[in-house]
C-alpha cells in the first residue's frame, strides 16, 4: 500500500497522468461553470426577499467554497511534506497558493458587492468576514514566505508549518456563523439536512461549484507542471518531454 503512495509522489508519473486528464478538466470545468452562471443569471427564479441581487450566490459560494477546500488540500499536502518529505506535495502547495489567494479575494469581493444592496454595507467586522480576511492573509503569507527563503528544502518545511498552523482558521470560518452573532447568515447547505432553498435554485449552484472545482484542477495541473519543469530540468524524462512532447 505504501508503495502505491510513494509512486503517487513521482513527478514523472504525475506529469504523464495530468497531461492526459487536463483537456477533460478544462472542457468540463468551463462548460459546467458557464452552465451554472447562465442558469443562475437568467433562468433561476428571483428570491422573495433579496430579489435579483441574490444571483451573486452562483459565483460567491463557489469561490468561497473552493478558497476553503484549496486550503484544506494544501494542509494535507503540508503533512505529506513534513512527514514523508515528498517533493510533489511541496510542488502542489506552491502551485496552488496563488490560486487560493485569488479565490479568497473573489469570495470577499463578490460578498462585499452583495452585502451593499442586501445588508446595507460593503464590509462589517463580523466573525465570518474577518476570518475570511485572515484566510486571504494566510495565502499571502504562504506565497511571501516561499519567496523569502532561497533554499528549496528549508522553504518547503517552513511553508508547510505555516500552512498547518493556519488550518485552524478553516473550522473558525465554517462555524463562525453558528458560534457567534454575525451579520452573515448561517449556511444554506448542510451535510445532514435538506438545503434551505428549492432545487431550481440549488441545481445551478451545484453546477458552478463542480465547474470551478474542475477548473481549479486544471489550474493546479498546469501550475504544478510549470514548477516541476523548472525543478527537474536536468532529468532525462523532462528533456524527452520538452524535446519530443511526450512523457
Amino acid at each position: 500500500m505504501w508503495q502505491i503512495f510513494h509512486k503517487l509522489g513521482s513527478p514523472k508519473w504525475f506529469f504523464g497522468i495530468s497531461t492526459r486528464f487536463m483537456p477533460w478538466l478544462l472542457v468540463g470545468g468551463i462548460m459546467l461553470l458557464l452552465a451554472g452562471a447562465v442558469w443562475g443569471l437568467a433562468f433561476a427564479p428571483k428570491d422573495y426577499l433579496q430579489g435579483n441581487s441574490y444571483r451573486i450566490i452562483y459565483i460567491h459560494v463557489p469561490a468561497a467554497f473552493l478558497a476553503q477546500s484549496v486550503y484544506i488540500m494544501m494542509a494535507s499536502a503540508a503533512i505529506v511534506t513534513l512527514v514523508w518529505r515528498m517533493k510533489l506535495a511541496d510542488v502542489f502547495v506552491k502551485a496552488v497558493a496563488p490560486v487560493g489567494l485569488v479565490l479568497t479575494f473573489l469570495a470577499l469581493f463578490t460578498g462585499a458587492v452583495w452585502g451593499k444592496p442586501t445588508w446595507g454595507t460593503w464590509w462589517i467586522w463580523d466573525a465570518r468576514l474577518t476570518s475570511m480576511l485572515i484566510l486571504l492573509f494566510l495565502y499571502g503569507g504562504v506565497i511571501a514566505l516561499d519567496r523569502a527563503i532561497n533554499d528549496e528544502k528549508s522553504a518547503a518545511r517552513a511553508v508547510a508549518v505555516l500552512v498547518l498552523v493556519g488550518v485552524v482558521n478553516i473550522p473558525i470560518i465554517k462555524y463562525s456563523v453558528e458560534w457567534w452573532n454575525t451579520l452573515h447568515q448561517p449556511a444554506t447547505f448542510k451535510l445532514t439536512e435538506k438545503p434551505s432553498m428549492p432545487a431550481e435554485m440549488w441545481v445551478p449552484l451545484l453546477l458552478s461549484v463542480l465547474g470551478l472545482y474542475l477548473v481549479f484542477g486544471w489550474l493546479a495541473c498546469v501550475r504544478m507542471q510549470t514548477e516541476i519543469l523548472s525543478r527537474e530540468q536536468r532529468t532525462r524524462w523532462v528533456k524527452e518531454f520538452v524535446m519530443k512532447g511526450r512523457v
Binding site: 428571483k46 422573495y48 445588508w119 446595507g120 428549492p198
Partner: peptide, 17 residues
Amino acid sequence: QVLAKHDENYMPPEVAD
C-alpha cells in the same frame, strides 16, 4: 446605522406568497 440581516432561506416569490 441600521443594517439588514437575512436568514439562510431562499425561495421564489410565488412560494413565499
